[in-house]
């Protein structure tokens, strides 16, 4: 069952499309439910599909196609580090190593305390600020250095 808040947000998204095109809101609906619940379980995906009146499999296709959706648990903070070319040229590798050492996890792992998950990201379209990372798909941190990463981690905890 979707929460009242989630339904309200999804209803807002539905106003953007013709009435007979409810599937169009699936991108937003999955994002809204993921933000609320932390990740997209089968149940969450079915909930979204049921609310929009589309087949479960159609929602699953979308949830697994776009890589900002998480169909596995990702802890409290999902840190996505871009390692694509512009970031790589500005040593995103050192940021990745630093994060891995600091958190004791590799990519796609969740720290034992359930706080952090590390993901390798593709280009986020902010290469001027390389190297960079995003937390929970919403906050972007640019011009990273190992020291700055430490500061950010401290703030998050």
């Amino acid at each position: 069952m979707l929460s009242a808040e989630a339904i309200e947000k999804i209803e807002y998204e539905l106003t953007k499309y013709p009435k007979d095109q409810r599937q169009a809101a699936v991108m937003s609906a999955l994002r809204i439910v993921q933000t609320e619940r932390g990740w997209l379980s089968q149940e969450s995906i079915s909930d979204v599909a049921a609310y929009l009146g589309i087949p479960d499999i159609a929602a699953l296709e979308v949830a697994t196609f776009y890589n900002m959706y998480d169909t596995e648990p990702v802890g409290k903070y999902k840190i996505t580090v871009c390692t694509n070319i512009s970031c790589m040229l500005r040593d995103s590798d050192s940021i990745v190593h630093h994060l891995q050492e600091k958190l004791g996890i590799g990519f796609n792992q969740v720290s034992e305390d359930g706080q952090f998950c590390l993901k390798e990201g593709e280009c986020m379209g902010a290469c001027g600020g390389a190297p960079l990372m995003s937390v929970n798909n919403a906050t972007m941190y640019e011009y990273l250095t190992p020291e700055k990463v430490d500061k950010i981690l401290k703030e998050l905890k």
């Binding site: 070319i85 512009s86 593709e122 280009c123 986020m124 379209g125 902010a126 290469c127 001027g128 600020g129």
Partner: peptide, 11 residues
Amino acid sequence: DEGEPGTFKDR
């Protein structure tokens, strides 16, 4: 949908 690596103008 600016995702071409190295592109960040539209942002």
